[in-house]
Design a protein around this nucleic acid. Structure first.
Lengths: 257, 257
DNA sequence: TGCATCAGCTTGTACCAACAAGCTGAGCAA
DNA sequence: TTGCTCAGCTTGTTGGTACAAGCTGATGCA
């Protein structure tokens, strides 16, 4: 009958109770010692079971406090609207979206000249290790880390648009700035994948165990070649990316709210 | 100096050695007892460290065999090309893509009439729990589970397209079938998110610890209302979704291969 | 030769013990 | 009242032990 190992039974029982509302999001689970008594198992076995739930992102633990059922509030990102001249990118769409949602945006910004990593060089069609401008952005919503965004521009582009290396923000947006120089972004290629965060990503995004990152790579093209490559990392549990394709007039009709 | 707990030092050291090629993808790590000797730590501590790497998706373990460095082979999905009348969906694009990649596609298929889940009902603009046709697809590549796809059609649509409830495949594709009835899909709305798999998903996709799922929801619209909602789950480590937006003629120029 | 068995490796499960470290509220002191 | 300390809760870390269970290659029998 009871072929499942005990720590798995513990995890399954707790998961059911989380699902059926016995422990709603934000509430605390019983302590390890209480669970130990309830399931007649050692503390180690209980910890094994709880650890399963943690790595699945259902609960989080903190020393001294206990285990808490996680609650997410998903943030919507409209990826197909981001980039055109009406709505230039580079923080504008982000700040607007966040403010409209009644949240407070905040970002730190950094510019450097670095060798292009292989992944980026491939997409920009330049030599691996050749120089590129990196504009790096670390974004927060209500002071919670939200995403990191690293945009690389190939070196040949800098000769035409020297302001790309300026340390500050480009007020009108980089897309619009480049367009004013006759370099227009006429299309882009998006790649989306998911994986567990590297320690570096976990640090920047303050991600605990059991939360994957969404990786979004956007390569922008002018008429004749790639002009930038943006790699954005999001907390997977707090973000959802949206694409609108074709005629969606039926979607907004009678939309509640 | 050495503030990091020992099990973390073990994980970090092994991660570095994986990154720098000491243990390339597919190779085996030393056994727990060997590592125990090397790091002068108990087996429990070593297991704690290894468990970190497992939940981060860097290595996988199996009883009797040991720990193996994972290797992924990413599969590209062109999401913006999937759905139009030239390339109808429902397995066609999947089979074509997989065959073109020199792999062997295989899928199981199921049709049922069920109450629409809340998530789907919201998108189809029907009452939660009202009946809907579910066409469910479990897809494999070279006999490895690849994705599950659940498409819901609202009940009112079935009255116009009764073949939707047929248990078998619809040869010409559902999109084309519906178009032949005058119900044309003129646009769609995509939502993409990532999270850790539920036990059910882990079972269907044979996902081990440390691998997230990519969730792809596509809602298709006719001129006046939503006509279907497709939820696809992928192994996050084996798939990458692509979107092409705008003019990308520059992308394919001089493309190798 | 061919096949079954088993020793000896591996990880998995389960228990015990002890102390470190973080948090909270009670209670005392200024 | 305000602020500090500390007892007593929580989880985190590390050590130990024992046996179960899966895999592989060597051994030896038919």
């Amino acid at each position: 009958m009871n072929k499942q190992p005990k720590y798995r039974q513990v995890a399954d029982a707790l998961r059911r109770e989380i699902d059926n509302g016995t422990y709603p999001p934000g509430s605390r689970l019983p302590s390890e010692s209480e669970l130990s008594a309830r399931f007649d198992a050692s503390r180690n076995t209980i910890r094994n079971g709880l650890n399963l739930l943690v790595t699945q992102g259902l609960v989080s633990s903190s020393q001294g406090l206990g285990y808490e059922v996680t609650k997410h509030e998903v943030f919507e990102l409209n990826a197909s609207r981001f980039e055109n001249l009406e709505f230039p990118q580079n923080g504008d769409a982000y700040s607007t979206d966040v403010t409209n949602a009644g949240r407070r945006p905040h970002q730190t910004f950094r510019v450097e000249l670095t060798p292009a990593p292989a992944y980026v060089a491939e997409r920009l069609k330049v030599e691996e290790g050749s120089r590129a401008v990196l504009r790096f952005c670390h974004r927060f919503v209500d002071d919670v880390p939200w995403s990191t965004q690293a945009t690389h521009y190939p070196e040949w582009l800098v000769e035409q648009g020297p302001r790309l290396t300026e340390p500050g923000d480009i007020a009108e947006g980089t897309t619009r700035y480049l367009a004013s120089l006759g370099i227009e972004q006429v299309g882009y290629f998006d790649e989306i994948s998911a994986r567990m965060p590297t320690p570096e990503e976990a640090r920047l995004l303050e991600i605990g165990a059991g939360v994957p990152v969404l990786l979004w790579t956007r390569t922008g093209f002018s008429n004749d070649r790639p002009i930038r490559c943006t790699v954005t990392t999001f907390r997977g549990d707090l973000n959802r990316m949206n694409y609108e394709i074709g005629d969606l007039s039926a979607r907004s009709e009678n939309e509640p709210q």
